[in-house]
């Protein structure tokens, strides 16, 4: 899946690139199976608290990533991208939960309970992030929208999602054009109201232009008889879940049952 930050790098955000290599095991799954599996996995991990269990969960997520043929280095790097303040939250935990003291840093006592809690959060957050990348990140964004629609998400929400995805690329390019124009006039980002306001004007302009574009799009769509519905021409709409989907469904049901039984 490509990012809006690199819209011109071959496979576009709409994902019509395809490629020649055979689909990976994860890619052979129905998109709906992948959405359900990701949700199930996330809920199971969030409600769990046993560190061994969570480690198994992270292992499962990494296996999924391998099956989805995610690039290893990029996945690892993304795993470490927790937001700055979350790192602070984690670092503070051993000191803010009272318990058995295992270490002292600058006169502050770190508790074993706090360390366990920090480990739990790290495991949960990373396992879910990797699983989401493996299951949903490999899905074309448009296919994700369609899967959500077929799973019963409100139609207007899905339309909003699909339109937003569609124009990300266009607007990102427009933004780059405007930034280039600013650079040609010797604008350099620096701390201060001048910079912040200039970027504010840029996005104000972008909003005005995008609204005019939306009006043209609306007119063009009505010309073509748009009635508020996207007919789906993709074959996937016709095909039901395959043997692989049933297999994965059975395996995950068994796993969840096992989890519930073991408490």
């Amino acid at each position: 899946m490509s990012l809006p930050g690199a819209p011109c790098a071959g496979s576009s955000i709409l994902g019509e690139g395809g490629g020649v290599r055979p689909p990976s095991l994860v890619e052979r799954l129905d998109s709906r199976t992948r959405v359900i599996l990701a949700l199930l996995f996330a809920v199971a991990l969030v409600t769990g608290s046993d560190v061994t269990l969570l480690t198994v969960g992270l292992g499962l997520a990494l296996i999924l990533a391998l099956l989805a043929r995610l690039p290893v280095v990029r996945t690892l790097r993304r795993m470490l991208v927790l937001e700055g303040f979350m790192l602070v939250v984690l670092a503070l935990l051993p000191f803010s939960i009272p318990g058995r003291v295992v270490a002292e840093v600058l006169g502050f006592a770190a508790s074993a309970e706090g360390l366990t809690r920090a480990a739990q959060i790290t495991l949960k957050a990373n396992a879910i992030t990797v699983a989401v990348f493996a299951l949903l990140g490999t899905l074309e964004v448009v296919a994700l929208g369609r899967a959500l629609a077929r799973l019963g998400a409100p139609e207007r929400l899905v339309h909003l999602f699909l339109f937003t995805v569609r124009y990300l690329d266009v607007l990102d390019r427009e933004y780059r054009r405007l930034r280039l124009a600013m650079r040609a006039r010797a604008f350099r980002p620096a701390t201060g109201p001048h910079c912040w306001c200039s970027i504010g004007y840029l996005f104000g302009m972008l909003m005005v232009r995008s609204l005019e574009r939306a009006e043209r799009i609306d007119a063009a769509m009505r010309c073509r008889g748009f009635t508020g519905r996207f007919p789906c021409l993709h074959e996937e709409a016709e095909s039901g879940p395959g043997a692989l989907d049933w297999g994965v469904g059975a395996a995950s049901t068994a796993a969840v049952t096992l989890l519930l039984v073991m408490g």
Partner: peptide, 15 residues
């Protein structure tokens, strides 16, 4: 209004 709202929300996403 959906295209209009989507357009604005993609501007905000880019920003």
């Amino acid at each position: 209004r959906v295209p209009r709202v989507a357009m604005l929300s993609s501007v905000l996403f880019v920003a």
